[in-house]
Protein backbone atom coordinates (compact mmCIF):
# COMPACT_ATOMS: atom_id res chain seq x y z
CA UNK A 1 0.00 0.00 0.00
CA UNK A 2 2.76 2.35 1.01
CA UNK A 3 4.60 1.65 -2.22
CA UNK A 4 1.43 2.32 -4.25
CA UNK A 5 0.84 5.60 -2.49
CA UNK A 6 4.45 6.63 -3.09
CA UNK A 7 4.12 5.76 -6.76
CA UNK A 8 0.96 7.87 -7.07
CA UNK A 9 2.72 10.74 -5.30
CA UNK A 10 5.65 10.43 -7.75
CA UNK A 11 3.29 10.34 -10.70
CA UNK A 12 1.53 13.50 -9.52
CA UNK A 13 4.83 15.34 -9.09
CA UNK A 14 5.97 14.07 -12.49
CA UNK A 15 2.82 15.32 -14.20
CA UNK A 16 3.05 18.69 -12.44
CA UNK A 17 6.66 19.10 -13.54
CA UNK A 18 5.90 18.21 -17.13
CA UNK A 19 2.76 20.38 -17.48
CA UNK A 20 4.44 23.77 -18.06
CA UNK A 21 6.75 22.60 -20.83
CA UNK A 22 3.99 20.45 -22.34
CA UNK A 23 1.65 23.42 -22.41
CA UNK A 24 4.26 25.62 -24.04
CA UNK A 25 5.11 23.00 -26.64
CA UNK A 26 1.48 22.21 -27.42
CA UNK A 27 0.57 25.90 -27.35
CA UNK A 28 3.18 26.91 -29.87
CA UNK A 29 2.49 23.87 -32.02
CA UNK A 30 -1.26 24.09 -31.86
CA UNK A 31 -1.54 27.82 -32.43
CA UNK A 32 -0.01 27.81 -35.92
CA UNK A 33 -1.88 24.62 -36.78
CA UNK A 34 -5.24 26.12 -35.84
CA UNK A 35 -4.34 29.41 -37.48
CA UNK A 36 -3.36 27.63 -40.70
CA UNK A 37 -6.54 25.56 -40.65
CA UNK A 38 -8.62 28.71 -40.16
CA UNK A 39 -6.87 30.54 -43.00
CA UNK A 40 -7.33 27.57 -45.34
CA UNK A 41 -11.08 28.26 -45.45
CA UNK A 42 -10.58 31.80 -46.71
CA UNK A 43 -9.45 33.46 -49.87
CA UNK A 44 -6.80 35.52 -48.13
CA UNK A 45 -4.16 37.73 -49.71
CA UNK A 46 -0.82 37.84 -47.89
CA UNK A 47 -1.02 41.62 -47.75
CA UNK A 48 -4.37 41.61 -45.91
CA UNK A 49 -4.69 38.51 -43.73
CA UNK A 50 -7.72 40.09 -42.06
CA UNK A 51 -9.45 40.82 -45.34
CA UNK A 52 -10.13 37.23 -46.37
CA UNK A 53 -13.42 36.02 -47.80
CA UNK A 54 -14.82 32.80 -46.32
CA UNK A 55 -15.00 30.20 -49.10
CA UNK A 56 -15.40 26.97 -47.11
CA UNK A 57 -13.62 24.02 -48.70
CA UNK A 58 -13.10 25.74 -52.07
CA UNK A 59 -9.33 26.02 -51.59
CA UNK A 60 -9.10 22.27 -51.00
CA UNK A 61 -11.41 21.43 -53.90
CA UNK A 62 -9.55 23.73 -56.28
CA UNK A 63 -6.23 22.19 -55.28
CA UNK A 64 -7.49 18.64 -55.73
CA UNK A 65 -8.85 19.54 -59.17
CA UNK A 66 -5.59 21.20 -60.25
CA UNK A 67 -3.40 19.07 -62.52
CA UNK A 68 -0.32 21.08 -61.44
CA UNK A 69 -0.93 19.87 -57.88
CA UNK A 70 -1.10 16.21 -58.92
CA UNK A 71 1.95 16.52 -61.17
CA UNK A 72 3.79 18.04 -58.20
CA UNK A 73 2.60 15.30 -55.87
CA UNK A 74 3.88 12.57 -58.21
CA UNK A 75 7.18 14.43 -58.59
CA UNK A 76 7.47 14.63 -54.80
CA UNK A 77 6.61 10.95 -54.42
CA UNK A 78 9.32 10.11 -56.99
CA UNK A 79 11.84 12.24 -55.06
CA UNK A 80 10.83 10.62 -51.78
CA UNK A 81 10.79 7.00 -52.95
CA UNK A 82 14.05 7.16 -54.90
CA UNK A 83 16.03 9.19 -52.37
CA UNK A 84 14.81 7.34 -49.26
CA UNK A 85 15.07 3.95 -51.00
CA UNK A 86 18.69 4.48 -52.04
CA UNK A 87 19.55 6.06 -48.69
CA UNK A 88 18.17 3.01 -46.91
CA UNK A 89 20.12 0.49 -49.01
CA UNK A 90 23.29 2.59 -48.80
CA UNK A 91 22.76 3.26 -45.09
CA UNK A 92 22.35 -0.44 -44.24
CA UNK A 93 25.36 -1.39 -46.38
CA UNK A 94 27.63 1.21 -44.79
CA UNK A 95 26.35 0.39 -41.29
CA UNK A 96 27.12 -3.27 -41.91
CA UNK A 97 30.57 -2.34 -43.15
CA UNK A 98 31.31 -0.30 -40.02
CA UNK A 99 29.86 -3.04 -37.84
CA UNK A 100 32.32 -5.56 -39.31
CA UNK A 101 35.10 -3.33 -37.94
CA UNK A 102 37.36 -2.98 -40.98
CA UNK A 103 40.68 -1.12 -40.55
CA UNK A 104 40.11 2.54 -39.59
CA UNK A 105 36.39 1.90 -38.98
CA UNK A 106 36.27 4.56 -36.27
CA UNK A 107 37.62 7.13 -38.73
CA UNK A 108 35.04 5.97 -41.28
CA UNK A 109 32.26 6.43 -38.73
CA UNK A 110 33.48 9.93 -37.94
CA UNK A 111 33.75 10.83 -41.63
CA UNK A 112 30.22 9.60 -42.12
CA UNK A 113 28.91 12.36 -39.90
CA UNK A 114 30.41 15.13 -42.06
CA UNK A 115 27.85 15.14 -44.95
CA UNK A 116 25.01 14.92 -42.46
CA UNK A 117 26.45 17.76 -40.36
CA UNK A 118 26.71 20.09 -43.38
CA UNK A 119 23.69 22.44 -43.39
CA UNK A 120 21.31 21.62 -46.24
CA UNK A 121 21.65 25.07 -47.80
CA UNK A 122 25.45 24.76 -47.82
CA UNK A 123 25.10 21.27 -49.24
CA UNK A 124 22.81 22.62 -51.98
CA UNK A 125 25.22 25.42 -52.86
CA UNK A 126 28.10 22.94 -52.98
CA UNK A 127 26.27 20.62 -55.36
CA UNK A 128 25.12 23.53 -57.51
CA UNK A 129 28.79 24.34 -58.04
CA UNK A 130 29.64 20.69 -58.68
CA UNK A 131 26.89 20.45 -61.34
CA UNK A 132 27.77 23.76 -63.00
CA UNK A 133 28.13 23.18 -66.72
CA UNK A 134 31.06 25.55 -67.21
CA UNK A 135 33.03 25.41 -63.98
CA UNK A 136 31.70 22.37 -62.15
CA UNK A 137 33.75 19.51 -60.73
CA UNK A 138 31.46 16.83 -62.18
CA UNK A 139 32.16 17.79 -65.79
CA UNK A 140 35.88 18.19 -65.08
CA UNK A 141 36.05 14.75 -63.46
CA UNK A 142 34.08 12.94 -66.17
CA UNK A 143 36.11 14.66 -68.87
CA UNK A 144 39.38 13.69 -67.19
CA UNK A 145 38.36 10.04 -67.09
CA UNK A 146 37.21 10.19 -70.71
CA UNK A 147 33.58 9.41 -69.86
CA UNK A 148 32.36 12.54 -71.66
CA UNK A 149 34.02 14.40 -74.53
CA UNK A 150 32.54 17.84 -73.83
CA UNK A 151 30.94 19.63 -70.91
CA UNK A 152 27.29 18.79 -70.27
CA UNK A 153 24.70 21.26 -69.01
CA UNK A 154 23.34 18.96 -66.31
CA UNK A 155 20.60 21.15 -64.89
CA UNK A 156 18.85 21.95 -68.17
CA UNK A 157 16.81 18.77 -68.48
CA UNK A 158 13.95 18.36 -65.96
CA UNK A 159 14.50 14.62 -65.44
CA UNK A 160 18.28 14.85 -65.12
CA UNK A 161 17.94 17.86 -62.83
CA UNK A 162 15.54 15.99 -60.55
CA UNK A 163 17.85 12.97 -60.32
CA UNK A 164 20.84 15.17 -59.57
CA UNK A 165 18.95 16.91 -56.78
CA UNK A 166 18.14 13.43 -55.44
CA UNK A 167 21.84 12.53 -55.60
CA UNK A 168 22.72 15.62 -53.56
CA UNK A 169 20.03 14.72 -51.03
CA UNK A 170 21.28 11.13 -50.78
CA UNK A 171 24.85 12.29 -50.12
CA UNK A 172 23.57 14.54 -47.37
CA UNK A 173 21.10 12.18 -45.70
CA UNK A 174 22.24 8.56 -46.00
CA UNK A 175 24.72 8.91 -43.08
CA UNK A 176 21.72 9.55 -40.82
CA UNK A 177 20.26 6.15 -41.70
CA UNK A 178 23.69 4.49 -41.52
CA UNK A 179 24.27 5.81 -38.00
CA UNK A 180 20.86 4.66 -36.74
CA UNK A 181 21.30 1.20 -38.25
CA UNK A 182 24.86 0.94 -37.00
CA UNK A 183 23.72 1.73 -33.45
CA UNK A 184 20.97 -0.91 -33.76
CA UNK A 185 23.44 -3.49 -35.13
CA UNK A 186 25.70 -2.90 -32.14
CA UNK A 187 22.82 -3.76 -29.80
CA UNK A 188 22.14 -7.18 -31.39
CA UNK A 189 23.65 -9.97 -29.23
CA UNK A 190 26.60 -11.53 -31.02
CA UNK A 191 25.77 -15.04 -29.80
CA UNK A 192 22.76 -15.17 -32.16
CA UNK A 193 25.11 -14.65 -35.06
CA UNK A 194 27.61 -17.15 -33.70
CA UNK A 195 24.91 -19.79 -33.15
CA UNK A 196 23.68 -19.41 -36.72
CA UNK A 197 27.23 -19.61 -37.92
CA UNK A 198 27.74 -22.87 -36.02
CA UNK A 199 24.54 -24.15 -37.63
CA UNK A 200 26.12 -23.52 -41.01
CA UNK A 201 24.42 -20.26 -42.06
CA UNK A 202 26.56 -18.21 -44.43
CA UNK A 203 27.05 -14.44 -44.09
CA UNK A 204 24.13 -13.54 -46.38
CA UNK A 205 21.77 -15.93 -44.61
CA UNK A 206 22.84 -14.56 -41.22
CA UNK A 207 22.23 -11.02 -42.41
CA UNK A 208 18.83 -11.56 -44.02
CA UNK A 209 17.46 -14.09 -41.52
CA UNK A 210 18.84 -12.80 -38.24
CA UNK A 211 20.07 -9.24 -38.33
CA UNK A 212 17.61 -7.67 -40.78
CA UNK A 213 14.45 -8.79 -38.88
CA UNK A 214 16.00 -7.48 -35.67
CA UNK A 215 16.70 -4.15 -37.35
CA UNK A 216 13.03 -3.66 -38.20
CA UNK A 217 12.41 -1.07 -35.44
CA UNK A 218 15.51 0.93 -36.30
CA UNK A 219 14.59 0.84 -39.99
CA UNK A 220 11.07 1.98 -39.12
CA UNK A 221 12.37 5.01 -37.21
CA UNK A 222 14.80 5.92 -39.98
CA UNK A 223 12.16 5.46 -42.68
CA UNK A 224 9.49 7.51 -40.92
CA UNK A 225 11.88 10.40 -40.21
CA UNK A 226 13.49 10.41 -43.64
CA UNK A 227 10.24 9.94 -45.58
CA UNK A 228 8.60 12.86 -43.82
CA UNK A 229 11.72 14.98 -44.39
CA UNK A 230 12.00 13.99 -48.05
CA UNK A 231 8.33 14.62 -48.73
CA UNK A 232 8.67 18.14 -47.35
CA UNK A 233 11.90 18.82 -49.26
CA UNK A 234 12.43 22.50 -49.98
CA UNK A 235 15.83 24.02 -49.22
CA UNK A 236 18.04 21.80 -51.38
CA UNK A 237 15.76 22.38 -54.40
CA UNK A 238 15.60 26.12 -53.71
CA UNK A 239 19.38 26.36 -53.78
CA UNK A 240 20.22 23.98 -56.64
CA UNK A 241 17.47 24.60 -59.20
CA UNK A 242 14.84 26.95 -57.72
CA UNK A 243 12.30 24.49 -59.11
CA UNK A 244 13.57 24.65 -62.70
CA UNK A 245 13.94 23.81 -65.43
CA UNK A 246 10.30 24.19 -66.44
CA UNK A 247 9.05 23.40 -62.91
CA UNK A 248 10.75 19.99 -63.32
CA UNK A 249 12.03 19.96 -59.74
CA UNK A 250 9.15 21.70 -57.99
CA UNK A 251 8.16 19.56 -55.00
CA UNK A 252 4.98 20.06 -53.00
CA UNK A 253 6.57 22.31 -50.34
CA UNK A 254 8.01 24.46 -53.10
CA UNK A 255 4.56 24.80 -54.68
CA UNK A 256 3.20 25.84 -51.29
CA UNK A 257 5.96 28.44 -51.03
CA UNK A 258 5.10 29.84 -54.48
CA UNK A 259 1.40 30.00 -53.64
CA UNK A 260 1.93 31.66 -50.28
CA UNK A 261 4.83 34.04 -50.73
CA UNK A 262 5.24 34.65 -54.46
CA UNK A 263 1.56 34.74 -55.40
CA UNK A 264 0.43 35.87 -51.94
CA UNK A 265 -2.45 33.34 -51.77
CA UNK A 266 -2.26 32.60 -48.05
CA UNK A 267 -5.55 30.67 -47.96
CA UNK A 268 -4.56 28.30 -50.75
CA UNK A 269 -1.05 28.00 -49.30
CA UNK A 270 -2.54 27.06 -45.93
CA UNK A 271 -4.76 24.43 -47.54
CA UNK A 272 -1.73 23.00 -49.32
CA UNK A 273 0.16 22.88 -46.00
CA UNK A 274 -2.67 20.89 -44.48
CA UNK A 275 -2.75 18.49 -47.38
CA UNK A 276 1.01 17.94 -47.04
CA UNK A 277 0.48 17.17 -43.34
CA UNK A 278 -2.22 14.64 -44.22
CA UNK A 279 -0.02 12.96 -46.83
CA UNK A 280 2.93 12.67 -44.45
CA UNK A 281 0.70 11.42 -41.63
CA UNK A 282 -0.74 8.81 -44.00
CA UNK A 283 2.73 7.64 -45.00
CA UNK A 284 3.87 7.39 -41.37
CA UNK A 285 0.77 5.31 -40.54
CA UNK A 286 1.43 2.95 -43.45
CA UNK A 287 4.97 2.36 -42.20
CA UNK A 288 3.81 1.74 -38.66
CA UNK A 289 1.07 -0.61 -39.85
CA UNK A 290 3.48 -2.78 -41.83
CA UNK A 291 6.72 -2.50 -39.92
CA UNK A 292 5.95 -1.91 -36.25
CA UNK A 293 5.99 -5.05 -34.12
CA UNK A 294 5.77 -4.18 -30.41
CA UNK A 295 7.47 -7.40 -29.25
CA UNK A 296 10.56 -6.68 -31.37
CA UNK A 297 10.81 -3.09 -30.23
CA UNK A 298 11.59 -4.37 -26.75
CA UNK A 299 14.72 -6.10 -27.93
Amino acid sequence: MATNSLRKQDAKIGVLLVIPSLLIILGITLQPVLSTLYLSFFETPLSKPSGGIFIGFDNYLNILKDKVFWATIWRTVYFTVVSVGIELILGIAVAQLIHSHPPAWKLLRTCLIIPWAVPTVVNGAMWRWIYSADYGALNALLLKFGIIDHYIAWLTNPITAMNLVILADIWHSFPFIALIIQAALASIPEDLDEAASVDGANALQRFFSIRLPLLRSAILIALVIRTVEAFRVFDIIYVITRGGPAFGTVAISFLTYFETFTYGHVGKGSALSFLISLFTLGMAMIYIRFLYKPEESRL
Binding site: L23, L26, G27, I28, L30, Q31, P32, L34, S35, Y38, P49, S50
Partner: peptide, 13 residues
Protein backbone atom coordinates in the same frame (compact mmCIF):
# COMPACT_ATOMS: atom_id res chain seq x y z
CA UNK B 1 -4.29 27.71 -23.19
CA UNK B 2 -4.78 26.07 -26.57
CA UNK B 3 -8.03 27.94 -27.20
CA UNK B 4 -6.45 31.23 -26.14
CA UNK B 5 -3.44 30.54 -28.34
CA UNK B 6 -5.71 29.60 -31.21
CA UNK B 7 -7.73 32.77 -30.80
CA UNK B 8 -4.58 34.85 -30.82
CA UNK B 9 -3.39 33.04 -33.93
CA UNK B 10 -6.71 33.32 -35.72
CA UNK B 11 -7.44 36.86 -34.72
CA UNK B 12 -7.09 39.11 -37.70
CA UNK B 13 -3.54 40.25 -38.14
Amino acid sequence: IAILAGMVGCSPK
